[in-house]
Design a protein around this nucleic acid. Structure first.
Lengths: 119, 119
DNA sequence: TTGACACATACCGGTATCGGTATATAATGC
DNA sequence: GCATTATATACCGATACCGGTATGTGTCAA
């Protein structure tokens, strides 16, 4: 059975945030809740597109909505970002120079151990 | 001109890391360099698929290769992850309870200001 | 040199994704 | 009620993406 469906898709925060426009939206919402048209004005993008991006963000729990008259006020809920922060944080030593140095030392220790394999 | 191409695609770390398999690969490489077949064994995925994911990771600079005989030893270079860490870090107060509390205080101050709008 | 091994690449099919346009829905104002 | 505003949704076309299979390329070993 070739070409089968792959695992979900835009179902998690990683994917939601992979899209630059959605990151822009979150950047805009970080200062507080905003109606859709506000975002449409700020981004250079049509209203339906913004609504669709907001839908994705909503589905992964990154934004929440509140109705105010005929507008929908969107606000951030960053909790799903914690997962990303944690995962990426686990790789800190792979970009941090100080940790790189530490790794060098550990490598040396390992080499010494191998050299003294006869004790 | 409808249906035009969208901005690049798998061209940055955000996108590279949005794919679960590629995160698994990085998780496996965090302990040290490994040849491709090692990864194929660890993941439940064909060798060509792993090679293609490694290519994406290579293109965004998240892994580097070293030739050893007929194998290619892949290792992590986490530097591109720093960008993600920084961006996500900017939203910490949107998931952290302590910051939530702080925000509550700020909100109160703002309200008080509005109340004293006559001084 | 021939064969096995390790890996990369090309191609295919199915689906997801994105922006764009048109339309539906719902609230507001006259 | 009717027009307007604010937003969501449906549909479309183009493309990107992912896994699978087949094949290419380079390296080692007999």
């Amino acid at each position: 059975m070739p070409g089968m469906a792959r695992a979900a898709a835009t179902a998690d925060a990683f994917n939601a945030v992979a899209e630059p426009r959605r990151r822009e939206i979150l950047d805009l919402l970080v200062t507080g809740e905003r109606p859709v048209n506000d975002l449409v004005g700020a981004l250079e993008l049509g209203q339906p597109q913004v609504s669709k991006h907001l839908r994705v963000l909503r589905e992964v729990g990154l934004v929440e909505v509140r109705e105010r008259g005929r507008q929908r006020m969107y606000r951030i809920n960053g909790r799903p970002l914690e997962q990303i922060h944690d995962w990426v944080g686990g790789f800190e030593r792979t970009w941090n120079e100080r940790f790189d140095a530490l790794e060098g030392v550990l490598e040396e220790l390992k080499t010494e151990e191998e050299d003294n394999a006869d004790d």
